[in-house]
Design a protein around this nucleic acid. Structure first.
Lengths: 233, 233
DNA sequence: GATTGTGAAAGCGTTCACAGCC
DNA sequence: GGCTGTGAACGCTTTCACAATC
């Protein structure tokens, strides 16, 4: 299949490509220049068929009998994910989490520099976190337009999250990463992803509870998606 | 269908139950005591059939022609998720993120008190974050056993994450929430969930890139999973 | 001989549509 | 008349298995 100009990659695959990318970059740094679907699968904790299918959506970049050239795959995945340039992000909310995110080196390192962090609370203004000064909410439009920001991060308390999202959308942001435990309402054409820490813990709690319930019943149930002496994501 | 003693709830449903729960608690606090699948669907940003199917895995707790009793549903979801008691968590890594997590009120509030936070770096010891003192890694076993912790949070730098996970497993933790951008390897029977901020941003970046590519081609593609004037999760 | 790329099969998750019940 | 509960249909994702290629 010749990779069509605007082919669509399944969401499940899109979610795994960043993981492969990270692992491939690490391999490259170790001086490894070729890898098989089996090898990458092992590193990623998935099976080889999935790796091959996922990579096949990018095009036919492997060599039968040999494997994939690591650097070339890195290049192709970056291109597909739109990582050939940096994506500056703006953070709304300079509380605990907002500050930690601004100070978290991983953002900058992986191509998402913090273009600015804003907060509505005057007491927080001009605090410097992670080398970025907290600015008033009214500076949002200016930050977004001057730095061409298209990704916003909502790190406000729940009650302020929808307002934060509305403001981000109004100034032209089209992708939002939401850390507030609320369901955001946004116009069509804006992509939202939600990261809810309490939800994650509650999912774990379900499995703990279930483990207790089934072991009490003397039964053995494997937790789905987790292999023998496995690697888990 | 009479809800069987150890029926299995699909993972996709398990991931949505905490969201319904949160919304139902909010409704309850507003004094609303009954809700239809349509109403809950609207709040959750999903469709009504999905809500009904999800809730049907708990049992038949609705009333035809009427809807669901909010408080009773809250009770049933909590029970199913194992939220009838608190689940103390231990955090490994007192860097930026670990501190923010310890200080984040949402954990305590939603039934996951921080039983302890440990770090390998002596310079961080005895710092107090969120009312909890940072303790040495060697205290891990004592914290876990004295407080009966079964959930651990890995908030270390990538290079230390596998070691952190190994130590958590060794002292008896059976569920891990991993914030480090690495694939953890754990024995069967241990559940791992990974939250990788860079991965989330890269998924958004893919959609941004795609939006740019397709609008340049004069085409219109709806982003899957996001409705008209929608509500997004 | 090794490994990819991919149709086909199997497995999940979502949505439809309507019978059943209030 | 309104709303739930759920089989059946549909669509997406994973896995299998093997021909194609190096």
């Amino acid at each position: 299949m010749s990779p069509h100009r605007t082919r669509r990659i399944p969401e499940a695959t899109v979610a795994r490509l960043p993981v492969y990318l990270q692992l491939l970059v690490e391999q490259s740094e170790l001086g490894i220049d070729s890898i098989s679907s089996d090898g990458l699968a092992e590193l990623a904790g998935v099976n080889a068929a999935k790796v091959r299918k996922d990579l096949s959506y990018l095009g036919s970049y492997g060599t039968r009998g040999v494997g994939y050239e690591v650097d070339y795959l890195v290049y192709q995945i970056r291109r597909e994910l739109g990582l050939e340039h940096e994506w500056p992000v703006v953070i709304v909310g300079a509380g605990n989490l907002g500050q930690a995110l601004a100070g978290y080196g991983g953002f900058n390192e992986r191509g998402f520099p913090v273009a600015g962090i804003v907060d509505i609370d005057p007491a927080k203004l001009d605090t410097v976190v992670g080398g970025v000064r907290v600015r008033p909410l009214s500076d949002l439009a200016q930050i977004v337009s001057s730095k061409s920001v298209s990704i916003g991060v909502v790190a406000t308390p729940p009650g302020a999250a929808q307002d934060a999202a509305d403001r981000l959308v109004k100034v032209g942001v089209t992708s939002i990463l939401n850390f507030a435990p609320v369901v955001l309402s946004v116009p069509a054409g804006v992509t939202v992803r939600k990261v809810d820490l309490a939800v994650e813990l509650q999912i774990l709690s379900y499995h703990e509870q279930r483990r207790a319930a089934t072991s009490a019943a003397g039964q053995l149930h494997a937790v789905p998606g987790h292999g023998r002496r496995g690697v888990s994501a």
